[in-house]
């Protein structure tokens, strides 16, 4: 079974431990601008949302890539990036509807989440489980159950 990174903005505290952990894992220093995950905070409302590559099945970054640098390995749910094939045309950067493929001028690379090859550092760093690495087919089960619980409680009140 394949896994993906699930976000829970309701739990996110905006601490950016995921952001620094990612930058350290990938670049060996702390540089949030090179992190593959970003956290945006709306301070008036007190809401924070983590964002990273969604590993789209029909990925625009793959479709527009003229050299096959951005590609999916057969049987994998990951979109992978081959720096050797990449001509730095930044078409993927333009195409990604989420803004999750980024060109980093410091390293001259396209940077995007690769789930740290099945062991995401951001997930390990999150102190409140606002990001989780979960099985795709059962990923939303707990979220569904949380809402089901509310229904259950409502019915119990009526009964």
């Amino acid at each position: 079974m394949a896994k993906f990174i699930m976000i829970h903005p309701d739990k996110c505290t905006g601490c950016k431990n995921c952001v620094v952990a990612c930058s350290y894992e990938k670049e060996n220093h702390f540089r949030p601008s090179a992190s593959r995950i970003h956290v945006y905070s709306w301070e008036r409302e007190g809401i924070s949302v983590p964002m990273m590559c969604q590993q789209c099945s029909d990925a625009p970054c793959v479709s527009v890539c003229p050299t096959g640098a951005m590609h999916r390995v057969f049987g994998s749910s990951l979109i992978e990036y081959d720096s050797g094939k990449c001509i730095r045309c930044r078409m993927c950067v333009q195409a990604c509807p989420f803004g999750n493929a980024v060109y980093d001028s410091v390293t001259d690379q396209i940077i995007k989440c690769d789930t740290c090859h099945d062991d995401p550092s951001c997930v390990i760093a999150c102190p409140v489980k606002a990001i989780e690495y979960v099985e795709e087919n059962v990923a939303t089960r707990s979220r569904k159950k949380a809402f089901a619980t509310k229904f259950k409680e409502a019915f119990q009140e009526v009964a």
């Binding site: 505290t13 905006g14 601490c15 431990n17 620094v20 007190g46 102190p127 409140v128």
Partner: peptide, 12 residues
Amino acid sequence: TRPKGCFSCIIS
């Protein structure tokens, strides 16, 4: 509404 954490905080 919810807890909030400063940069790199694990306490929130």
